[in-house]
Amino acid sequence: MERWSSFYKQIQKNKMAMIGGYIILFYIIVAIFAPLIAPYDPLEMNLLNKLQPPSLENWMGTDDKGRDVLSRLIYGSQLSLTVGVVSVAIGAFVGIILGLVSGYYGKMVDTVIMRFIDVLLAFPGILLALAIISALGPDLINVMIAVGVFSIPTFARIVRGSTLSTKKMEYVDAIRALGATDFKIMFVHILPNIMSPIIVQGTLRLATAILTAAGLSFLGMGAQPPSPEWGAMLSSGRNFLWNAPHLATFPGLAIAIIVMGLNMFGDGLRDALDPRMKR
C-alpha cells in the first residue's frame, strides 16, 4: 500500500499527467456506458435528415446517411479502445516472452531473437501493418493482429535490456542456487521487478496503437462500413469537408484528444516509476 501511495503522490505532482488520466477515465466511462449515453442508434439511417449541421437535436450533426455523429463517436470509443488494448496486449505478451528469453539466456538464443526483432524494426510500423492486413484481409481483428505484431519489437528490446541488468543481481543468484527453474526465475522473480518500464511503454504504445488503427481504417484497411470506427468516420467525412466539415472535425478531435491524454499520462507514469526521473 505504501508503494501505491507513493506512486499516487508522484502522479499528483504532475498536473499534465493528472489531466491525461482524467481524459482516459472519461473515454473509458463513455465506452462502458455507450448504450446508456448515446442518444440514438449509431447505425440507424434517416436520409431525410442527412448532412445536418450541429443542432439541439443532433449535437454534432448527422452524416451523409442521416446517422447521428455523436452516437457514432460514442460507440466508436468502444471499438478504438478495444483495438488499442488488444493490440498492445498481443505485442506485450509476445515481446515480453522474447525479451525475457533473449536477455536471460544470451549467446546464440539472444542473437537469433534479436535478429528477428531487427527484421521487424526494418519496416516502418504502418507499412508492416499494411503488409500484414494485405495478407490477412481488411478486418478489425486483423488490424489488432497487425498493430500487435509491429508493437512486439518495442517491448522485446525494453524487456531484454532490463533482464540483462536484473539477472546479474545477487537475489537471482541466490534463487538459482536454491534450485529454482529458469522458468520460475524469469517469470516469478525477474518479470515482476521490471514491470515499471513495461507499464510505461504499454501506456505510450496504446496511443500509437489507436492512432495506427485509425489510420488503417482511414485507408480502408481496417473497420468496414457501417462500423462507427473513428478512422472510418474520418475517411468518409473527408468527402464533405466543404459542405459538412463536422463529419471530419469531430472524429479527428476524438482521436487527437485520447492520443494526447495517453501520452501525457504515459509521461507522468515514466516520471513516477523511474527513480532517475524523480527530482
Results as ranks from 00 to 15, higher is better:
S134V: 01
V86R: 08
S71K: 09
I11W: 09
D68H: 06
A31N: 13
I132K: 04
L136F: 14
M16E: 14
A244I: 07
I28Y: 04
S5A: 15
A31C: 05
A244K: 09
N193P: 09
K50A: 15
D118M: 10
T181R: 13
A272N: 05
I199C: 09
L128M: 07
P245K: 09
L241S: 09
L206S: 02
Y8T: 11
K167P: 07
F150M: 05
I19N: 10
A207H: 11
F218S: 12
T154K: 00
L121I: 09
A214H: 02
V69I: 13
S134R: 05
R72A: 06
G91F: 00
P226G: 12
V85K: 03
S236A: 15
A254Y: 02
G261N: 12
D41Y: 01
D271F: 07
S151Q: 10
I132Q: 01
Y8G: 06
L47R: 02
D68A: 07
G261Y: 11
S102G: 06
N239L: 12
P124S: 05
E2S: 15
P138L: 05
L36M: 12
L219H: 09
K9D: 14
Y40C: 06
L120H: 01
N58P: 08
G148D: 08
M16A: 15
S87H: 07
G231Q: 13
S217E: 11
M169F: 12
V188F: 14
Y40R: 02
A232G: 12
